[in-house]
Design a protein around this nucleic acid. Structure first.
Length: 499
RNA sequence: GGUGACGUGGCCGAGUGGCUAGGCAAGGGUCUGCAAAACCCUGUACGACGGUUCGAAUCCGUCCGUCACCUCCA
């Protein structure tokens, strides 16, 4: 049965059915990060939306070509200023304290790209079909500029090649910034380049032979404008006309507006049929910022405490992000995170129960198959309905509850549970960790110490010496370990730093 | 100044005209040497004021409040 996938399109401001241009094959582009620092949880909220589009489309049998870029070319913090050093985010990063350990700017880009991919995997984001780098598509960008110059959509000044916004009447449709005066109002405080023909015009190329990242072009040494790379890479890997283009809400203007202008002037076709924008994440009700002290990278949360993190299960972080709808501002709080640490543990409990059922269960009735199928159907329908993750999660909570009501599972029931877990994991990525947490150094000796204490406690309990047993429990607690007495003997785990 | 959102019980959050969303937290209970986990029970909310309607959290209007973007940003 053909399923319909509905998504809200920021361009039309309506929820629409996704209908791939090529039957059953989705062409999807999502704007990736500039690799000048560690990516934070807000960045990952956007990447997660892209991941969910990818997973949901695949779950209804579509083939998906999913491209997301790495921006490893510095971009000016201000389009109108000439590119002196210190105005470029990557250059700034290199010149900062943290930048001192890098040999050069390329080294810095390489490092943060690797880290990004590690974080990406830890949050169980699927690998995109292709992850192009801006620096590796300079030839295509230069070619695009030449074409735009030739067709009259761009012009050259003494230090810049500008895109001519008046040459593209549809400019402003995506963001609603259609009136030139409004934009002028917005840029009134910014330094103007007197050679600029229209205040809305934006740079395609900056001539600058002193910049740390520069390439040779028909206009001398320099570097490309920020918006061009995505236009060119999307075109290279997905074609002139793509199905969905996604990114954070801040990219609506100017980035995506400018991408549309460039690409449509180049191809004469509709660039992206749908635009999907993820709203910003806030932390504890405020905009995340380093100065407010509420700025979190993925690693701040996920790395073990011994390595400066908080030792939180990355999938709990993922579930936390999933607990809000992508089109609403999301308030990330530690209370919500704590809740989701528990939800995650319940999935582990379900996995354990199912595995034990497969191994030791009897050949009995399958009492779960029907309910789990129905609940998964609810999850899938929710995702197909504009990625309604809160609703999708609600259905999985009902399912875990249903399963955990049973102390033991028959072989057949266990098999159904495993099937449900697999399906849920394929769609939401919250069941099986992709990359295990890094083990703490000295982990083994720590485990041995805990095991010894637990064994001593078991002895005390068997001797009915409960005073001693409680003392040992207290001792374990102070080590950050919690002991649980189960029918299969005592088990222990590290207490979450949040509890 | 321009543009676009959002306001549901202690908290998160679904729900676009009538039927208990779900979860977390809380209280009570079962289980346990004590715990933990798990399970069971309890809790009736929709910013304000008008309007439409037999009936509105849901549609319309006004107001109040919160937030985001306007060439650094996911």
């Amino acid at each position: 049965m053909a399923r319909q996938f509905h998504l809200y399109n920021s361009l039309s401001r309506e929820t629409e059915t996704v209908e791939p241009l090529h039957d059953g094959h989705l062409q999807f582009y999502s704007c990736g990060p500039t690799v000048y620092s560690y990516a934070h949880i807000g960045n990952f909220r956007s990447f997660l939306t892209a991941d969910l589009i990818f997973r949901t489309a695949k779950s209804i049998g579509w083939e998906v070509t999913y491209a997301t870029n790495i921006t490893d070319v510095g971009h000016l913090t201000d389009d109108d200023l000439t590119g002196t050093t210190g105005e470029d985010r990557m250059v700034q990063a290199l010149q900062s304290k943290e930048g001192e350990r890098f040999a050069n700017i390329w080294d810095l880009a390489r490092y943060y790209t690797l880290v990004l991919q590690e974080d990406w995997r830890s949050l169980n984001l699927l690998e995109p079909t292709v992850r192009p780098r801006a620096s590796e598509h300079m030839r295509e960008q230069i070619k695009a500029i030449e074409q735009l110059l030739k067709s009259g959509h761009a012009y050259e000044t003494s230090n810049t090649i500008y895109f001519s916004v008046p040459s593209f009447p549809a400019y402003g449709r995506l963001s609603g910034n259609e009136a030139a005066e409004d934009l002028e109002q917005g840029v009134r405080d910014v330094v103007h380049d007197p050679e600029k023909q229209d205040p809305r015009d934006f740079a395609l190329w900056k001539k600058d032979d002193s910049h740390l990242m520069q390439w040779h072009s028909p206009w001398g040494w320099g570097f490309p404008g920020w918006h061009l790379e995505c236009s060119v890479m999307a075109q290279t890997y997905l074609g002139d006309e793509i199905d969905i283009h996604a990114g954070g809400e801040d990219l609506i203007f100017p980035h995506h507006e400018c991408e549309i202008a460039q690409t449509e002037c180049l191809t004469g076709k509709t660039f992206a049929r749908k635009w999907v924008h993820t709203r910003f994440l806030q932390v504890e009700g405020k905009k995340m910022s380093k100065s407010a002290g509420n700025f979190y990278t993925v690693r701040d949360l996920v790395l073990p405490e011994s390595e400066g993190g908080r030792g939180i299960d990355p999938l709990a972080v993922r579930m936390t992000l999933l607990s809000g709808h992508y089109r609403k501002p999301f308030n990330f709080t530690f209370e919500t995170l704590k809740t989701n640490v528990r939800h995650r543990q319940r999935f582990d409990d379900v996995v354990a129960l199912a595995e034990s059922g497969l191994e030791n269960g009897e050949n009995g009735q399958n009492e779960l198959s029907g309910s789990l199928t129905a609940l998964f159907e609810r999850t899938l329908s929710a995702m197909l309905d504009d990625l309604n993750t809160p609703e999708a999660l609600a259905a999985t909570f009902e399912a875990t509850k249903l399963v955990l009501k049973h102390e033991h599972l028959s072989k057949d029931s266990a098999a159904s549970v495993i099937r449900w877990l697999d399906n849920t994991n394929d769609l939401l990525g919250i069941v099986y960790p992709h990359a295990p947490l890094k083990t703490e150094s000295g982990d083994e000796s720590f485990a041995a110490e805990v095991d010894a204490l637990v064994a001593a406690r078991t002895q005390a309990r068997e001797a009915d010496d409960f005073t001693r047993a409680d003392e040992l429990r207290d001792e374990l607690t102070s080590l950050g370990v919690e002991v649980m007495d189960t029918p299969d003997g005592p088990k222990w785990k590290r207490r979450s730093t949040l509890s």
